[in-house]
Every structure is written in structure tokens, then in C-alpha cells.
């Protein structure tokens, strides 16, 4: 419930922001027809289904609203989940037009199945330790995660955040025994928010998105690992033009600003 609650709040906030935004853009568009709409892309319309990694939830929600505002007639439908999960769904024939993965490996799976031809890495995400605000286990660094009695939630090994976290532990030369391997990064974060675990290893962007509900413990750069996020318009996209327009928008400075604000770094 909590997790959904968070999502709902984020969505509502984004929509509220967007409605304010769009009304102003709309009015400006009406007054100056040669505005942003024509400069970015050719006129497209329809619904574009975007499958994106869980860690992109907040950033893409904002980006989608901005894109819709800039391209009236286009509706972006977002579907967030573990990249491995999404890749699997796409390969099973889910109606996706764009895939934004949290790891090149999952994009490769889609590529291999012929779902995408060319992808572009658009951001990079580093890991951070999330702890409940009162930090019950007194975590100060990566090494504390290996301590006995410290309850750690990680993403499952096949999920990008799980793979990247494993890289961090390799770098730090420690072995972490988690109490649970979650299906995606958001549910790992939820376990931290609910205080069910003492710490979780998630993306920098997730800690930032969670606001005051969790506290982030920075992982020093020499230990940290990152994952690159590729994005691609899918070959089987029902709305090819829309899909390409959206991918182009994500790579545009406007979207990059949103992503940077969320904590993503340039690839």
C-alpha cells in the first residue's frame, strides 16, 4: 500500500505540475504557433507505450507530461517494472513502443529477440545505501552491511539494481547476506521505508525520490558501481513515429535536466 501510495503522490504531484505547465504552454502555443511543437519533431499523434525501469518512475513521469504538453495529441502510457521483467514481457509480445532499461543486458535481451535494433545510453545511475530515517542499525558505510544482525534488502540478482549492488560488494571485498531479494528496486526501497530492514542498496535516484522517508548513505566513488540506461524505440512499435519522438525527447537537454535533477548522471 505504501509503495502505491508513494507512486500515487508522485503522480499527482507530477500531474499538478503538468497541468500548470501545459496550460501555460498551450496558451503560449496558441499565441505563437511556431513554438516548441514544430521545432522538436514532426507532428505525431496516438498513444505511445513506454516500458521503463522502476528507477525511472519519477523522472519519466515528469518527462512524459512535458512531452505530452509539447506534442498535443500524443499520449504517453508509462509502465514501470524491473528491467528484467519488462524485457521478458516485451519478448513475450507485450505492446511496448519504447523500452528504457536500467541495464544494457536487458536491452540486449530485447535486441537478441529482434525487438530493438539500436539503443542509446541516456543516463547512468550510481548506487547508494538507503536506511530508515532513524538509521536503527547505525549504518555508516558499505562495510556495515556485512555485519551480523544487520538486515539488508537487495534486488534479486537478475534485476539490474541487484547486479550493480553485487558489483559494489565485490569492489568493497565484502559478503552481504541479505534477508530478502526483492523483485525490483522500488520494492527494495519500500522495505527500507517501512523499517522492515535496516538497509537496502538502491540507486542514488531512488534515495532522492523517496525524500525524507529514507536516509541515504553515500558509497565512496572508489567502491561505487553504476549501471548505464539504454533506451530504444522498438522495432515492433505500433506508433513508430511517436516512439522515435519520445526517445529523441529523452535525449534532449530538457529531459536531461529532469533526469539530472532526479540524480542521474550523464553516461
Amino acid at each position: 500500500m505504501h509503495r502505491h501510495f508513494v507512486a500515487v503522490i508522485a503522480l499527482t504531484a507530477a500531474l499538478a505540475l503538468a497541468s500548470g505547465c501545459s496550460s501555460s504552454t498551450k496558451s503560449s502555443q496558441q499565441s505563437t504557433p511556431a513554438g516548441g511543437g514544430t521545432s522538436s519533431t514532426a507532428a505525431v499523434s496516438g498513444t505511445v507505450n513506454v516500458f521503463a525501469a522502476s528507477s525511472l518512475t519519477e523522472a519519466f513521469t515528469t518527462i512524459a507530461t512535458q512531452f505530452e504538453a509539447a506534442n498535443p495529441g500524443v499520449k504517453i502510457k508509462l509502465n514501470f517494472g524491473a528491467s528484467s521483467d519488462l524485457a521478458n514481457s516485451i519478448n513475450q509480445g507485450a505492446p511496448a513502443d519504447v523500452f528504457a532499461s536500467a541495464s544494457p543486458k536487458n536491452m540486449q535481451q530485447v535486441n537478441d529477440a529482434g525487438g530493438a535494433s539500436a539503443s542509446t545510453n541516456f543516463v547512468k545511475n550510481f548506487m547508494e545505501i538507503a536506511v530508515p530515517p532513524n538509521n536503527p542499525a547505525g549504518i555508516t558505510g558499505v562495510a556495515d552491511l556485512a555485519k551480523k544482525g544487520v538486515k539488508v534488502a537487495l534486488c534479486a540478482a537478475q534485476v539490474p539494481c541487484g547486479k550493480t549492488a553485487a558489483q559494489v560488494f565485490t569492489n568493497a571485498k565484502i559478503t552481504v547476506k541479505p534477508v530478502t531479494l526483492e523483485q525490483n528496486v522500488k520494492s527494495t526501497l519500500t522495505k527500507v521505508e517501512l523499517g522492515e530492514v535496516d538497509a537496502g542498496v538502491v540507486y542514488v535516484t531512488d534515495v532522492r525520490a523517496a525524500g525524507s522517508k529514507v536516509k541515504g548513505i553515500v558509497i565512496p566513488a572508489h567502491l561505487d558501481a553504476s549501471t548505464e540506461y539504454p533506451i530504444a524505440a522498438l522495432t515492433k512499435a505500433a506508433h513508430s513515429a511517436g516512439a522515435k519522438a519520445f526517445v529523441a525527447y529523452v535525449l534532449s537537454p530538457a529531459a536531461q535536466t529532469v533526469l539530472a535533477a532526479a540524480g542521474f548522471e550523464k553516461p
Binding site: 534479486a156 537478475q158 541479505p178 534477508v179 530478502t180 531479494l181 523483485q183
Partner: peptide, 16 residues
Amino acid sequence: GNLPGTTQTMPLKIYN
């Protein structure tokens, strides 16, 4: 949660 040997039952294992 989901941890092999402790809480990972067959349906969870299958899902993973």
C-alpha cells in the same frame, strides 16, 4: 520477502 533457503518457496523461485 524472497531469499533462497529461507523464504523462497517454489512459486517465488518460478517467478524469479
